[in-house]
Amino acid sequence: MRLLFVTGFLGSGKTSLIIPLAKRLVQFKRRVAILVNEIGEIGIDNQLMHQLDLDVWELFNGCICCTLTADLVSTLQKVDADYAPDLVIVEPSGAADPKNLLSALPYYRGRPLASIRWVAVLDPLRLPMLLEVLEPLITAGIRQADCIVISKTDIASEAEVAAAAAAARAINAQAPLFCVNLGAELASELAGELLR
């Protein structure tokens, strides 16, 4: 079983990345489980994924980086035992700190994890502002990432995308970086990188 964490601030495009990726894998007969942790009192992303016939588990009543870290582990184990997915995609809330998620994983006791990948989705329209006002949270996600996705290239200016890429590179120079319009078809190169 592989594990893919899709991190990013609220509204950065996490769900817009996860849906086409999961759909693509399902088309290829892969079993994909999606764990969604939303902050709002009524989940929207999980409703949408259910409507699209994706297999979704919701983590409510808290944030998986603090109050729900134990629930993350127990849900992973339950999904592994009941569903035996090839891939579990975890969408933490946009306010979750990745390092707290990392600290929970050693307690997982299901099938061995073939890989654990982290992708950080960044909104170029707001990244400079967010780095100013929520710096530790935003940089933690970028630093942790194995792959960085700059989203919204359809509405951001070239300068905004370039600035976001430079800011991300300053924090994490190693991770492959993709600038994409998540409303368009998911590029094979990006999908391949996420599924390594």
Binding site: I39, E41, F60, N61, G62
Partner: peptide, 23 residues
């Protein structure tokens, strides 16, 4: 309102204040 919709509430919103406290 959410309380009457039947989904669990998110009771500890205060716990998220730590995300908004840069060092």
């Amino acid at each position: 309102d959410a309380a009457s919709v039947g989904q669990p509430l998110f009771p500890n919103v205060g716990e998220h204040t730590h995300h908004s406290h840069p060092n």
